[in-house]
Simulated scan of single mutants.
Amino acid sequence: MLVGVVPEARMDVCGVSAEDVELEYVSAAGIRERGALGRLWPVRFESVRPERRFPAFRGQGNWCGWYWSATCGGHVGYEPWLERDHLMLFDFDPLVAGMSSQPFRLSWTGPGGKRVRHTPDFFVRRADGTGLVVDVRTDERVGPEDAVKFAVTAAACRSVGWDFARVGTPDAVLMANVRWLAGYRHPRVHRPQVAARLVEVFTDGGGLLAGALRVGDQIAVLPVLFHLLWRRVLAVDLEGGLLSADTRARLGIVREGGQDAVTSSAVASG
Protein backbone atom coordinates (compact mmCIF):
# COMPACT_ATOMS: atom_id res chain seq x y z
CA MET A 1 0.00 0.00 0.00
CA LEU A 2 3.00 2.30 0.19
CA VAL A 3 2.36 5.21 -2.13
CA GLY A 4 4.35 5.15 -5.33
CA VAL A 5 5.88 7.77 -7.53
CA VAL A 6 3.45 10.03 -9.40
CA PRO A 7 4.66 11.68 -12.61
CA GLU A 8 4.54 15.46 -12.52
CA ALA A 9 4.41 18.24 -15.08
CA ARG A 10 6.71 17.76 -18.05
CA MET A 11 9.49 20.34 -18.07
CA ASP A 12 13.23 20.48 -18.48
CA VAL A 13 14.56 19.78 -15.01
CA CYS A 14 17.50 17.62 -16.11
CA GLY A 15 19.88 20.32 -14.95
CA VAL A 16 18.62 20.35 -11.35
CA SER A 17 21.25 18.95 -8.98
CA ALA A 18 21.46 18.48 -5.24
CA GLU A 19 23.92 21.38 -5.05
CA ASP A 20 21.47 23.76 -6.76
CA VAL A 21 18.81 23.26 -4.10
CA GLU A 22 19.09 24.68 -0.60
CA LEU A 23 17.43 22.86 2.28
CA GLU A 24 16.38 24.37 5.61
CA TYR A 25 15.02 22.38 8.54
CA VAL A 26 14.57 22.41 12.32
CA SER A 27 16.36 19.61 14.15
CA ALA A 28 14.81 17.51 16.91
CA ALA A 29 16.69 19.76 19.35
CA GLY A 30 15.00 22.84 17.89
CA ILE A 31 18.05 24.15 16.02
CA ARG A 32 17.48 25.58 12.56
CA GLU A 33 19.93 24.22 10.00
CA ARG A 34 20.53 25.26 6.41
CA GLY A 35 22.70 24.03 3.57
CA ALA A 36 22.80 22.36 0.18
CA LEU A 37 20.57 19.32 -0.29
CA GLY A 38 23.65 17.44 -1.48
CA ARG A 39 25.21 17.88 1.98
CA LEU A 40 22.15 17.51 4.21
CA TRP A 41 20.25 14.66 2.60
CA PRO A 42 21.63 12.00 5.06
CA VAL A 43 19.82 13.73 7.97
CA ARG A 44 17.14 11.52 9.57
CA PHE A 45 14.31 13.76 8.42
CA GLU A 46 11.69 11.40 9.83
CA SER A 47 12.75 12.69 13.27
CA VAL A 48 12.91 16.47 12.71
CA ARG A 49 10.45 19.10 13.90
CA PRO A 50 7.97 20.67 11.48
CA GLU A 51 9.62 23.43 9.47
CA ARG A 52 6.71 25.74 10.26
CA ARG A 53 3.88 25.83 12.76
CA PHE A 54 0.37 24.56 12.13
CA PRO A 55 -1.91 27.61 12.44
CA ALA A 56 -5.22 27.61 14.31
CA PHE A 57 -7.58 30.59 14.20
CA ARG A 58 -11.25 31.46 14.06
CA GLY A 59 -12.73 31.07 10.60
CA GLN A 60 -9.89 28.86 9.43
CA GLY A 61 -10.62 27.22 6.08
CA ASN A 62 -8.88 23.92 6.78
CA TRP A 63 -8.46 21.66 9.77
CA CYS A 64 -5.10 21.32 11.50
CA GLY A 65 -4.21 18.79 14.13
CA TRP A 66 -1.85 16.14 15.41
CA TYR A 67 -2.18 12.47 14.56
CA TRP A 68 -0.76 9.90 16.98
CA SER A 69 1.28 7.46 14.89
CA ALA A 70 1.73 3.87 16.04
CA THR A 71 4.75 3.65 13.74
CA CYS A 72 6.48 6.67 15.29
CA GLY A 73 5.13 6.30 18.82
CA GLY A 74 4.33 10.02 18.82
CA HIS A 75 2.35 12.78 17.16
CA VAL A 76 2.71 13.96 13.56
CA GLY A 77 1.07 17.20 12.43
CA TYR A 78 -1.26 17.78 9.51
CA GLU A 79 -3.18 20.72 8.03
CA PRO A 80 -6.19 19.59 5.98
CA TRP A 81 -7.95 16.32 6.75
CA LEU A 82 -6.68 14.93 3.46
CA GLU A 83 -3.16 15.04 4.93
CA ARG A 84 -4.45 13.25 8.03
CA ASP A 85 -5.88 10.49 5.83
CA HIS A 86 -2.52 9.96 4.16
CA LEU A 87 -0.80 9.94 7.54
CA MET A 88 -3.11 7.07 8.51
CA LEU A 89 -2.22 5.22 5.31
CA PHE A 90 1.50 5.69 5.98
CA ASP A 91 1.00 4.53 9.56
CA PHE A 92 -0.90 1.47 8.34
CA ASP A 93 1.76 0.56 5.78
CA PRO A 94 4.17 -2.13 7.07
CA LEU A 95 6.86 -0.83 4.70
CA VAL A 96 6.97 2.53 6.51
CA ALA A 97 9.37 2.90 9.44
CA GLY A 98 8.93 6.62 10.21
CA MET A 99 7.46 9.89 8.99
CA SER A 100 7.45 13.61 9.68
CA SER A 101 5.29 16.51 8.50
CA GLN A 102 6.60 19.65 6.78
CA PRO A 103 10.11 18.26 7.29
CA PHE A 104 12.07 20.95 5.45
CA ARG A 105 11.90 23.87 3.08
CA LEU A 106 13.57 23.64 -0.31
CA SER A 107 14.61 26.69 -2.31
CA TRP A 108 16.27 27.26 -5.67
CA THR A 109 16.85 29.99 -8.21
CA GLY A 110 14.02 30.21 -10.72
CA PRO A 111 13.62 32.10 -13.99
CA GLY A 112 14.82 35.69 -13.82
CA GLY A 113 16.87 34.98 -10.72
CA LYS A 114 13.81 34.83 -8.45
CA ARG A 115 14.18 32.57 -5.41
CA VAL A 116 11.52 29.84 -5.37
CA ARG A 117 10.58 28.08 -2.12
CA HIS A 118 8.62 24.92 -1.44
CA THR A 119 7.85 22.99 1.76
CA PRO A 120 6.80 19.37 1.08
CA ASP A 121 4.05 17.94 3.26
CA PHE A 122 5.78 14.76 4.45
CA PHE A 123 9.02 12.85 4.60
CA VAL A 124 8.57 9.07 4.85
CA ARG A 125 11.32 6.64 5.79
CA ARG A 126 10.77 3.15 4.46
CA ALA A 127 11.78 0.03 6.35
CA ASP A 128 14.57 -0.59 3.83
CA GLY A 129 16.10 2.82 4.65
CA THR A 130 15.02 4.63 1.48
CA GLY A 131 13.28 8.01 1.59
CA LEU A 132 10.05 9.27 0.08
CA VAL A 133 9.04 12.95 -0.11
CA VAL A 134 5.29 13.51 -0.39
CA ASP A 135 3.06 16.40 -1.38
CA VAL A 136 -0.67 16.08 -0.82
CA ARG A 137 -2.58 17.92 -3.54
CA THR A 138 -5.51 16.88 -5.71
CA ASP A 139 -5.23 17.37 -9.48
CA GLU A 140 -7.72 20.23 -9.61
CA ARG A 141 -5.68 22.20 -7.10
CA VAL A 142 -2.40 22.02 -9.01
CA GLY A 143 -1.76 25.30 -10.82
CA PRO A 144 1.12 26.00 -13.23
CA GLU A 145 3.42 27.35 -10.50
CA ASP A 146 2.65 24.36 -8.28
CA ALA A 147 3.40 21.96 -11.14
CA VAL A 148 6.82 23.55 -11.60
CA LYS A 149 7.57 23.31 -7.88
CA PHE A 150 6.58 19.65 -7.81
CA ALA A 151 8.66 18.88 -10.91
CA VAL A 152 11.78 20.55 -9.49
CA THR A 153 11.23 18.88 -6.12
CA ALA A 154 10.92 15.50 -7.82
CA ALA A 155 14.17 16.10 -9.75
CA ALA A 156 15.97 17.22 -6.59
CA CYS A 157 14.78 14.11 -4.77
CA ARG A 158 16.00 11.85 -7.56
CA SER A 159 19.42 13.49 -7.38
CA VAL A 160 19.91 12.18 -3.82
CA GLY A 161 18.17 8.82 -4.27
CA TRP A 162 14.79 9.73 -2.77
CA ASP A 163 11.44 9.11 -4.39
CA PHE A 164 8.84 11.84 -4.76
CA ALA A 165 5.07 11.42 -4.89
CA ARG A 166 2.14 13.78 -5.22
CA VAL A 167 -0.97 12.11 -3.82
CA GLY A 168 -4.62 13.09 -3.95
CA THR A 169 -7.86 11.67 -2.60
CA PRO A 170 -7.50 8.00 -1.62
CA ASP A 171 -10.08 5.33 -2.43
CA ALA A 172 -13.17 6.03 -0.32
CA VAL A 173 -13.80 2.43 0.80
CA LEU A 174 -10.16 1.80 1.64
CA MET A 175 -9.97 5.02 3.60
CA ALA A 176 -13.16 4.33 5.56
CA ASN A 177 -11.83 0.91 6.60
CA VAL A 178 -8.40 2.25 7.55
CA ARG A 179 -9.98 5.04 9.62
CA TRP A 180 -11.95 2.41 11.52
CA LEU A 181 -8.92 0.21 12.16
CA ALA A 182 -6.86 3.26 13.17
CA GLY A 183 -9.10 3.53 16.22
CA TYR A 184 -7.48 0.31 17.46
CA ARG A 185 -3.86 1.06 16.52
CA HIS A 186 -2.55 1.77 20.02
CA PRO A 187 -0.59 -1.08 21.68
CA ARG A 188 -2.77 -0.81 24.78
CA VAL A 189 -5.50 -2.63 22.84
CA HIS A 190 -3.31 -5.70 22.46
CA ARG A 191 -3.98 -8.74 24.65
CA PRO A 192 -1.41 -11.47 23.87
CA GLN A 193 -3.47 -14.51 24.87
CA VAL A 194 -6.53 -13.35 22.93
CA ALA A 195 -4.36 -12.45 19.95
CA ALA A 196 -2.71 -15.87 19.85
CA ARG A 197 -6.11 -17.57 19.99
CA LEU A 198 -7.42 -15.38 17.14
CA VAL A 199 -4.47 -16.40 14.97
CA GLU A 200 -5.33 -20.05 15.59
CA VAL A 201 -8.98 -19.49 14.75
CA PHE A 202 -8.26 -17.65 11.50
CA THR A 203 -5.59 -20.07 10.28
CA ASP A 204 -8.07 -21.44 7.74
CA GLY A 205 -9.88 -18.11 7.28
CA GLY A 206 -13.41 -17.15 8.25
CA GLY A 207 -15.87 -14.37 8.97
CA LEU A 208 -14.82 -11.69 11.45
CA LEU A 209 -17.69 -12.00 13.89
CA ALA A 210 -17.90 -15.80 13.77
CA GLY A 211 -14.18 -16.04 14.46
CA ALA A 212 -14.33 -13.56 17.31
CA LEU A 213 -17.21 -15.47 18.96
CA ARG A 214 -15.15 -18.66 18.84
CA VAL A 215 -12.53 -16.93 20.99
CA GLY A 216 -14.83 -15.37 23.58
CA ASP A 217 -17.05 -12.41 24.40
CA GLN A 218 -17.13 -10.18 21.33
CA ILE A 219 -16.90 -7.02 23.47
CA ALA A 220 -13.50 -8.19 24.73
CA VAL A 221 -12.29 -9.92 21.56
CA LEU A 222 -13.24 -7.53 18.73
CA PRO A 223 -10.85 -4.71 19.76
CA VAL A 224 -7.96 -7.20 19.71
CA LEU A 225 -9.15 -8.51 16.36
CA PHE A 226 -9.18 -5.01 14.87
CA HIS A 227 -5.72 -4.37 16.33
CA LEU A 228 -4.41 -7.48 14.58
CA LEU A 229 -5.96 -6.27 11.33
CA TRP A 230 -4.22 -2.93 11.82
CA ARG A 231 -0.89 -4.66 12.37
CA ARG A 232 -1.46 -6.92 9.31
CA VAL A 233 -1.20 -10.01 11.51
CA LEU A 234 -4.63 -10.79 10.06
CA ALA A 235 -5.64 -9.63 6.60
CA VAL A 236 -8.90 -8.72 4.87
CA ASP A 237 -9.91 -7.12 1.57
CA LEU A 238 -10.08 -3.43 2.50
CA GLU A 239 -11.07 -2.16 -0.93
CA GLY A 240 -13.85 -4.56 -1.87
CA GLY A 241 -16.36 -3.27 0.66
CA LEU A 242 -16.81 -1.84 4.15
CA LEU A 243 -15.82 -4.10 7.03
CA SER A 244 -18.75 -6.12 8.33
CA ALA A 245 -19.50 -9.14 10.48
CA ASP A 246 -19.21 -11.38 7.41
CA THR A 247 -15.93 -9.95 6.08
CA ARG A 248 -13.55 -12.85 5.69
CA ALA A 249 -10.15 -12.67 7.38
CA ARG A 250 -7.07 -14.80 6.93
CA LEU A 251 -3.54 -14.92 8.25
CA GLY A 252 -1.53 -11.98 7.03
CA ILE A 253 2.07 -11.29 6.20
CA VAL A 254 4.08 -9.45 8.84
CA ARG A 255 7.66 -8.23 8.79
CA GLU A 256 10.21 -9.55 11.27
CA GLY A 257 13.73 -8.17 11.06
CA GLY A 258 13.04 -6.76 7.61
CA GLN A 259 11.89 -10.14 6.27
CA ASP A 260 8.41 -11.24 5.28
CA ALA A 261 6.99 -13.96 7.47
CA VAL A 262 3.68 -15.76 7.64
CA THR A 263 1.85 -14.88 10.84
CA SER A 264 2.47 -17.18 13.78
CA SER A 265 1.08 -17.27 17.30
CA ALA A 266 4.44 -16.04 18.57
CA VAL A 267 4.30 -12.99 16.30
CA ALA A 268 0.71 -12.23 17.30
CA SER A 269 1.48 -12.39 21.02
CA GLY A 270 4.51 -10.12 20.71
Score class of each variant (00 low, 15 high):
72 C>Y: 01
74 G>Y: 12
75 H>G: 11
75 H>N: 12
77 G>V: 12
80 P>E: 04
81 W>R: 03
82 L>T: 13
84 R>D: 00
85 D>K: 01
87 L>W: 15
91 D>G: 12
92 F>H: 14
92 F>R: 13
93 D>I: 10
97 A>S: 15
97 A>N: 10
97 A>F: 08
100 S>Y: 14
100 S>E: 15
101 S>P: 00
103 P>C: 11
105 R>E: 15
106 L>R: 01
106 L>K: 01
110 G>E: 10
113 G>F: 07
113 G>V: 04
115 R>Y: 01
117 R>G: 05
119 T>R: 05
122 F>R: 05
123 F>L: 13
124 V>A: 13
128 D>F: 12
128 D>W: 11
128 D>I: 11
129 G>D: 13
130 T>V: 04
132 L>P: 03
132 L>F: 04
134 V>I: 15
136 V>C: 11
138 T>L: 03
139 D>I: 07
139 D>E: 14
141 R>C: 02
144 P>H: 09
144 P>K: 06
144 P>V: 13
145 E>F: 08
146 D>Y: 09
146 D>W: 08
147 A>Q: 08
149 K>M: 05
152 V>P: 06
155 A>P: 03
157 C>V: 05
157 C>E: 05
157 C>A: 12
159 S>I: 00
160 V>E: 00
160 V>M: 01
161 G>M: 02
165 A>W: 00
167 V>L: 11
169 T>C: 09
170 P>N: 09
170 P>K: 12
171 D>V: 01
171 D>T: 01
172 A>K: 00
173 V>I: 13
176 A>L: 01
177 N>S: 03
179 R>V: 02
182 A>R: 00
182 A>S: 14
184 Y>F: 15
185 R>M: 00
185 R>G: 00
186 H>F: 13
190 H>D: 08
190 H>E: 08
190 H>Y: 09
192 P>K: 06
195 A>L: 10
196 A>T: 04
197 R>S: 09
197 R>C: 03
199 V>Q: 05
199 V>E: 00
